[in-house]
């Protein structure tokens, strides 16, 4: 039961942290912001597995399980895109030269989320991700180029690592995951710098649920976080999203993907359609539903 409350607290903080990043839930403007723009065309999903003191070290079976979940999420999104006649091609890679990067997290996970919520811990976490990227960059076997263009050789921060990946994989959109090996009571899932015009966006994740991966990928591409944790289910009024699009992956990321969908509203937010259907405007603010 204590574990359950720890998870709940972390999830609550996660949703609060999203609120801290956006003053208004109408975040379609975020769709074309930063490195993950419209979710179409070629998209590279790149994972770096990181060991931190607070969580168990990665073992091969954990890595495999996480990769499997991530691939399920990508296949699911791709299937939905095909159904909507959206050209989308995912490519997945992860840093293999050294299975995991050992870089301790700058603070306790729960504190980190609290600080992100208050806008205090962003610099620390960005510095941590820069250090992880630098370690990756030092070991990365860069491609040998024969053209006369400049290329990234030794990326020394997250932005340069993403620049290198864009260059090598010839793609505009790169989803960079820093994977932590979560345990039941300690989990983190946070989209960093999604609305920033200074720092590059990336994801820190310790879950290995396919639905959470789908949620995170869509979130980086502009989908609004419509998840609201319920304390007891009784006596709590639903949000407009919970009422109108209950099976949307952005509303209900803890369900099985087979039960979930990408609603018309979320499709609008990620650039799959250009018009919001009647009534969906209310989802921009996602207030409590009133009959």
């Amino acid at each position: 039961m204590r574990n359950f409350y720890s998870i709940y607290l972390l999830i609550l903080l996660l949703s609060l942290s999203s609120c801290a990043t956006y003053k208004d839930t109408d975040n379609r403007w975020a769709m074309n912001a930063n490195v993950c723009k419209k979710l179409r065309g070629d998209v590279l999903v790149y994972a770096v597995f990181v060991d931190i003191k607070e969580l168990p070290n990665w073992e091969q079976k954990d890595v495999n399980r996480t990769i499997d979940s991530l691939k399920i999420a990508m296949d699911w999104i791709k299937e939905k895109a095909t159904k909507e006649e959206i050209p989308l091609n995912f490519r997945f890679e992860y840093f293999k030269k050294q299975q995991t990067i050992d870089k301790n997290f700058p603070e306790k996970l729960s504190n980190a989320l609290y600080n992100i919520n208050n806008g205090l811990g962003l610099d620390k976490i960005n510095k941590w991700s820069d250090n992880v990227s630098k370690l990756v960059g030092n070991m990365y076997d860069t491609k040998v180029w024969t053209d006369s263009f400049p290329h990234v050789t030794k990326p020394n921060n997250t932005e340069r690592l993403i620049a290198l990946l864009r260059d090598e994989y010839h793609t505009e959109n790169v989803v960079l995951f820093f994977m932590l090996n979560g345990e039941r009571s300690k989990q983190i899932s946070v989209s960093m710098n999604r609305a920033s015009n200074e720092n590059i966006e990336y994801e820190i994740n310790s879950f290995n649920y396919a639905s959470i991966f789908a949620f995170e990928i869509l979130n980086l591409f502009g989908a609004a976080n419509l998840y609201t944790p319920e304390v007891s289910g009784k006596g709590k009024s639903k949000t407009y999203a919970q009422y109108s699009i209950p099976n949307d992956v952005m509303v209900n990321p803890f369900s099985s993907l087979t039960e979930l969908e990408i609603s018309g509203f979320t499709q609008y937010m990620i650039g799959w359609n250009s018009e919001v259907k009647d009534g969906y405007e209310k989802l921009f603010r996602n207030r409590k539903y009133k009959k």
Partner: peptide, 11 residues
């Protein structure tokens, strides 16, 4: 701004 690299230049 960010340094130009091959992919950005070509695109």
């Amino acid at each position: 701004s960010k340094p130009w690299v091959g992919y950005d230049i070509q695109s």
